[in-house]
Structure formats: structure tokens, C-alpha cells
Design a protein around this nucleic acid. Structure first.
Length: 117
DNA sequence: CTTCTAACA
DNA sequence: TGTTAGAA
């Protein structure tokens, strides 16, 4: 069965607006019915779940688009193919670097706060 | 009523 | 991202 954007939104908890945005980013590729309506396969429900997960994991849409065809949804878990692990490790390293920057910012802000009269 | 695109207090 | 206008 094909599902329209409204139903997919209801079944995933993701707004139609975001669903269209994901498409523009190349994350979702629905077919079009004669009236121009987007028609998603049932599998899109899982795909959207994976996308949400990866976004929450801090990946940009571009990276998600490249990684998407190499991952499978297993319940709430996102399972990547073996060859993808190294690339994901790079993302992890990037996040680690961000954490360092954030703690630095926090430390500087702490100094400013501590200087309060 | 539902979806589409484009654009914005 | 939300929301909205006008059209289909």
C-alpha cells in the first residue's frame, strides 16, 4: 500500500512540512500520483524513523543521505552496514571536538559570570 | 477535506 | 520549522 503525506506524518509524528523538507534534502523519494500527491511506500515509516535517529545523533542531512542506503531499521535501533562504521567514527570524532569547544565556551562564560560585581 | 508550492512578522 | 495563501 502507498501512504499519503498526511498519514505518514501521523504514523511517524513528523510534520508534513519536515517530510517535504527531507525530500528536498534527498532523504526521501516518494512517487507521485496523478494528482501530484506524494505516495510513500510503507517502508517510508521506518526510513523516517532512521532519519530522525540520525538527526538526533547529530548528523547533517547530507551525511544522512549518503548513509541512508547502508542502514536498516531494527525497531528503534539503526543498524549500519559494516563498511559504514569508519565513516560514523569520523562523525563521532567531530562531536567529541564540538564537546571540547562547548566546554571551553562554558568555562569562559563561567569566568564572566564569576566576575559579576 | 487533503495536498501542493512558495513565501514570510 | 511553523504557518499561510491560493489553486487543484
Amino acid at each position: 500500500m502507498k501512504v499519503l503525506i498526511g498519514e505518514l506524518a501521523a504514523r511517524t509524528g513528523v510534520s508534513p512540512r519536515s517530510l517535504r523538507y527531507y525530500e528536498k534534502q534527498g532523504l526521501l523519494i516518494p512517487e507521485r500520483s496523478v494528482n501530484g500527491y506524494r505516495e510513500y511506500p510503507e517502508s517510508a515509516v521506518d526510513t523516517v524513523g532512521v532519519v530522525r535517529r540520525l538527526i538526533a545523533a547529530g548528523l547533517c542531512t547530507g551525511t544522512i543521505a549518503r548513509v541512508l542506503p547502508c542502514v536498516r531499521a531494527e525497531g528503534a535501533q539503526v543498524v549500519p552496514c559494516a563498511g559504514l562504521v569508519s565513516e560514523l567514527a569520523v562523525e563521532r570524532a567531530r562531536i567529541t571536538a564540538q564537546l571540547a569547544e562547548l566546554s571551553h565556551s562554558r568555562a569562559l562564560l563561567d569566568e564572566v559570570i564569576a566576575a559579576a560585581q
